[in-house]
């Protein structure tokens, strides 16, 4: 049957789901940005790996590079703001690659004409405070202004560079490996969604945005070579990140739903909105794949850290079904789907 002209036409525009962190975004990257990208050889990890960042071998070390553009509406939300997010997000991507020494960040901002200077100063103060907390400097930056309405108030791009002797990829899982999550899931996505949809929820729903570098150092110290895979479950949430980890490693993952830590507030907001906390973004959590013998050791190290006290072993890599997530709910089992596009509140 011939393609349908109308349907093809609207598919050629970028839609919100292309930025949702799920399959639509990955397909777009593969179809547009990856074309020809394999032609440039990299000793380390390049674009085609679609990992959290890149790694380039320099002598007996790797230079890790990662970049992230931050847009969020509203700029200030319970638990954080775009400034904190822009530093933590990039630091976390470096950390997920196994970085042991942070070298520095760059910061490019694009501002909307008419933005209040006070807002910019508050964002900058927040960036600075987060940098200080992590112990990483901003090395260089760039500022641009666009006309009113041409951009939504403020966009921040940060690039990070770091060093490590051993890269941790997101594809290192083997059958039998345990999956650990470093804390409660879904807090950031649900907090922002509640605010954005003007749900007027009051209570303890807060973003979890936090830099994870220090926590990851404790994990690497406790687990060593047994830490085989790491990924931060940002857009698309735990479901999307674990799909990627399973797909790249050619394993399945069996998850125990009752073991997944969810804060009461996120659980409540999820129930109200009909959204699974496993499907929404986290900004201060990591998923860590460890060899089974090291799982308890790594878990203990996490629990001793303030950002890891709710850490839990939530799953195990299994041989079949490859590339899929099986969720044991306690009542039965189901496949955990990868979210498509931005999650929206449901009525049914």
């Amino acid at each position: 049957m011939k393609p349908i002209p109308g349907l093809v036409k609207h598919n050629q525009r970028i839609a919100m789901r292309h930025g949702g962190g799920g399959r639509a975004m990955r397909t777009l990257i593969e179809e547009v940005f990856m074309r020809g990208a394999d032609d440039i050889p990299v000793d380390g990890v390049g674009l085609s790996a679609m990992d959290d960042g890149a790694a380039i071998r320099i002598g007996d070390q790797y230079l890790i590079v990662t970049t992230d553009s931050h847009v969020i509406h509203p700029l200030f939300f319970p638990g954080g703001d775009i400034g904190m997010l822009s530093i933590a997000g990039t630091v976390n991507d470096l950390s997920m690659m196994g970085a042991t020494q942070l070298l520095g960040l760059t910061c490019g901002v694009i501002l909307e004409e008419g933005l209040e200077r006070d807002i910019l100063e508050r964002v900058q103060a927040s960036m600075q405070a987060t940098c200080r907390e992590v112990g990483v400097p901003i090395l260089t930056g760039d500022t641009k202004v666009m006309g009113k309405g041409e951009i939504d108030s403020l966009v921040i791009n940060t690039t990070g560079v770091a060093l490590t002797k051993r890269i941790v990829r997101d594809n290192g899982l083997q059958v039998g490996d345990r999956i650990i999550v470093t804390g409660t899931v879904g807090d950031h996505g649900l907090a922002v969604m509640a605010l954005r949809n003007k749900l007027e929820l009051e209570g303890d729903l807060r973003s979890d945005v936090a830099p994870l570098f220090d926590l990851v150092q404790k994990v690497l110290a406790a687990g060593g070579d047994s830490v085989v895979a790491m990924k931060d479950p940002t857009r698309g949430g735990v479901a999307s990140a674990l799909h990627e980890m399973a797909g790249k490693a050619g394993v399945g993952i069996l998850i125990s739903e009752q073991a997944v830590p969810v804060s009461e507030a996120a659980r409540a907001a999820g129930e109200l909105l009909g959204i699974d906390p496993l499907h929404v973004a986290n900004e201060g959590k990591a998923l860590i794949g460890v060899r089974p013998e090291a799982a308890d050791r790594v878990l203990a190290a996490l629990k001793a850290h303030p950002l890891g006290r709710n850490a839990a072993i939530i799953g195990t890599a299994i041989a079949e079904p490859k590339g899929k997530l099986v969720l044991d709910t306690g009542f039965g089992k189901r496949l955990l789907a990868e979210p498509e596009g931005e999650p929206l509140p449901r009525i049914c």
């Binding site: 109308g6 349907l7 609207h10 525009r13 970028i14 839609a15 919100m16 789901r17 949809n197 596009g341 929206l344 509140p345 449901r346 009525i347 049914c348």
Partner: peptide
């Protein structure tokens, strides 16, 4: 929220938002 991505004859509300 459920209705945004539901396709009509040629377009959904999400499409025309684009």
């Amino acid at each position: 929220g459920d209705m945004v991505r539901v396709p009509g004859t040629v377009k959904s509300l999400a499409d025309v938002r684009g």
